[in-house]
Design a binder for these strands. Sequence first.
DNA 1: GAACGTCGTTCCAAGAAGCGGAACAGTAAA
DNA 2: TTTACTGTTCCGCTTCTTGGAACGACGTTC
Lengths: 256, 256
Amino acid sequence: MVAENKSHSTVNSVEVALRIIETLKEQGGMGVTELATELDLPKSTTHRYLKTLTENEYLVQNGTTYHIGLRFLGVGEFSRTRRRGFQMVKQKVEEIAEETGEKAQFIVEEHGKAVYVYQEIGEKGVKLGWGVGTRIDLHSTSAGKAIMAEWPEERVEEYVDTHGLRELTPHTITSHEALMEELEETRERGYGINEQEHVDGFIAVGVPVHNSSDTVLGALSVGGPVNRLQDDWLEQEVINLLLGMANELELNLRYS
Amino acid sequence: MVAENKSHSTVNSVEVALRIIETLKEQGGMGVTELATELDLPKSTTHRYLKTLTENEYLVQNGTTYHIGLRFLGVGEFSRTRRRGFQMVKQKVEEIAEETGEKAQFIVEEHGKAVYVYQEIGEKGVKLGWGVGTRIDLHSTSAGKAIMAEWPEERVEEYVDTHGLRELTPHTITSHEALMEELEETRERGYGINEQEHVDGFIAVGVPVHNSSDTVLGALSVGGPVNRLQDDWLEQEVINLLLGMANELELNLRYS
DNA sequence: GAACGTCGTTCCAAGAAGCGGAACAGTAAA
DNA sequence: TTTACTGTTCCGCTTCTTGGAACGACGTTC
């Protein structure tokens, strides 16, 4: 096995284990041979990793197939509750989903991706699609743009350099200049808009939430089908609701 | 490094990585040296692991300290949504919390532990303590006993042999015979009771939820301070609510 | 402002630990 | 019973992890 691309001096065994976890997440439960062929590893090696992860209770073995275990639930839950103020965010997202009836979420940037940290689906909201923990591009989401708008210019440039601007629909922003303009507008109006830039027929708005210092903590957003989220309702009621919620969160973060 | 206790032929590097994750979860963010002394590893080794996990986006580096990353959120979320019917459970737990005003949860057995899969806190509910992902002993919880009551006798014995019966309060069941009797009673009355067996002053009731086959999927439970959860209310209203919810879940699991 | 302590990071030779082909075992279908 | 799959164990070869030591980057103290 050669050094490959990754920067030298990382523990290869750990990366193999992580690849196994990711594959099990994407494909669901798998058997030893199945996983071995999928990852192009010898059966014995695959078996050793699965055994290691199972003995440490990170996987569960159901007869002949291995599954992602619930141990990850505790670690995942910790990853969001460790930051103060995040519990409060949950309630706000619930309120937003309740009031708008659409899909509401709190999104945070991590490793150059927009991560869904909390999500609640209102009664009209679409059940399918991205749930908690999903990682999507920043430049094609309302929350992502709301977050990036708060960044210094060089950080945005770094983002574009390392991640590029993937075209997901005909409406996606794909040029550096267009993105800079869009972020400027976002900053001025105080919230980000995603008009079918990530998925056709899906529209969303997102407002930034600031930390007690001036850094951006994340963004609250609401999204739904383009025919239901009309301009007037969206740009008045929904935006005001989001801005109010963000403000409450910021005040609570400052004085607690 | 010697073979230690673990059964031969597991990947040591993976276990080191997992220990790092667990330590970061328990202690919060840590620096390289801090973690190295905590785990009794050389600085360079610790650093290599942290780097590996960070490059794969499972940790985040905030200046000089490393934290659990949100990538675990996606894996954790998958671990509960992969089983069909679990989305529905979330709603039921919310309803129970709403109606009782106390802390309601859905608990599943995994690797001989009771794992909190969903939890919702009613308006009177105690905010502190165990949240989603927590793993506690089966024999000292209402949900755990409700689950174990469905097991064949030999499985219960296996549990006692491998896990023992830890005494957590003066009320905890600590003898094999007493446990068998208690499970018999639980089976007869149809629900499990935890009277300060896990924590002093805390009482709970739990009902099993069966899979479409006859195996037990998990248990719904409600708990609160002993002075508020009085016998009459608990054994009539709350139990009936739980039994009804469990029944709805079972029907939905059977026909979907 | 020089010197110190403390942090994180990089380097590289020694050897411990993971690798993987092959043989074995267990199960279900033909 | 045979065949064709599974998952699991074994063990010698060799690769990859290891960890002490040196380096670099802060920040603090005298």
